[in-house]
């Protein structure tokens, strides 16, 4: 394991990108920070800029207007980084698959600019906070 990956696994700082989600996954992500779940105990911290982030929490099935911005955010994130596709929409566009304004899902957009991107999937509509924590733990263990 390279030292870069080793350091990525400790206290991951995350940046949250909403690319056209319905807000459910987003409020559940914020819920992770509040007293009941409190992931800051484990060093997981929501940061205000992708340049500070080890991981991106991407929600939503990527609308046409959001896609270029998602690519830009991914470019700005220091590598290596992990992209978490949170929720059914981010994993495969979910119920919005047939929408005319949807160009996702997340992995397709990210792989266009980086075929070797590390992408982890947390399905659910919305995934429960417990599921998100479990997804992050499993993904970091698999690195």
């Amino acid at each position: 394991m390279s030292w870069k990956i080793w350091s990525l696994k400790k206290s991951p700082w995350v940046f949250h990108v909403n690319t056209g989600a319905c807000n459910n996954c987003d409020i559940e992500i914020v819920d992770l920070l509040t007293p009941k779940f409190d992931v800051e105990r484990f060093g997981i911290k929501l940061v205000g800029s992708p340049r500070h982030a080890d991981a991106l929490l991407v929600t939503g099935g990527v609308t046409a207007q959001a896609a270029p911005r998602l690519r830009e955010v991914y470019r700005q994130t220091p590598k290596p980084c992990v992209v978490f596709a949170i929720g059914a929409c981010a994993c495969d566009k979910g119920i919005f698959t047939t929408g005319y304004h949807m160009v996702g899902p997340v992995d397709k957009i990210i792989k266009e600019i980086d075929p070797n991107a590390i992408i982890a999937y947390v399905p659910g509509c919305p995934p429960k906070p417990e599921a998100m924590i479990s997804g992050i733990v499993k993904a970091l263990a698999a690195l």
Partner: peptide, 22 residues
């Protein structure tokens, strides 16, 4: 526009009973 998913159009392709989930 960032969050425009085209729900009104998708709704036209779903049955009356499916629309509440959308």
């Amino acid at each position: 526009s960032y969050n425009h998913r085209g729900i009104e159009k998708i709704s036209e392709s779903l049955q009356f009973d499916q629309v509440p989930f959308l």
